[in-house]
Amino acid sequence: MSQILWGAYAQRNTDDHPPAYAPGYKTSVLRSPKNALIAIGETVSEVTAPHFSADQFGPKDNDLILNCAKEGLPVGERVIVHGYVRDQFGRPVKNALLEVWQANASGRYRHPNDQYVGSLDPNFGGCGRMMTDENGFYIFRTIKPGPYPWRNRINEWRPAHIHFSLIADGWAQRLISQFYFEGDTLIDSCPILKTIPSEEQRRALIALEDKSNFIEADSRCYRFDITLRGRRATYFENELH
């Protein structure tokens, strides 16, 4: 057994994810398939994924405090977010592309379709990207986003959150989600977070205050780990081939 021969990714546990049709989140009603998804045996198409290299990225791509600053610093709470990306079997996910986007400190997005009265910040863009390292570690710096109102029910408010996207080793691992901040009381009333069926899984999207990693007179820190699907090894027949 000198070289490991990798089989398929373990099946996605659909009970760990939101259903497509979730009427409390109204937009999902007309944007969810009526038919059940059709499960397929994985092939080379599903276990491969594109490769990105760190030299494609600029030095401030993971620094949302500075990457759109023009005449000064953006307004708001300075925070560092860091953590590890692993697969479900606990292995580090190396050289994965992690992309993030968010509102500014007012809860206002820099997007043509956002008309919220909360003010735009001329020195804040709200997007960043990075690669995980050999240990699956990532780190970025930002302004903590504000909560914002949206029209689901008329007085709906999102908790403060940062959107994130991962492209890793296999197309089957492709994931977009959002993480929240420990202690935000809006977490308990959010219909988007409530689409996730279990309490444990909802909790898996809450970044934790990492006090010993605060930087004095500068920034606070949150810790957030991400788990992707993992591949089984094959020791008998390999049907992928």
Partner: peptide, 8 residues
């Protein structure tokens, strides 16, 4: 470990 849940 459980896969991180998806969100929109």
């Amino acid at each position: 470990l459980h896969e991180t849940p998806s969100q929109t």
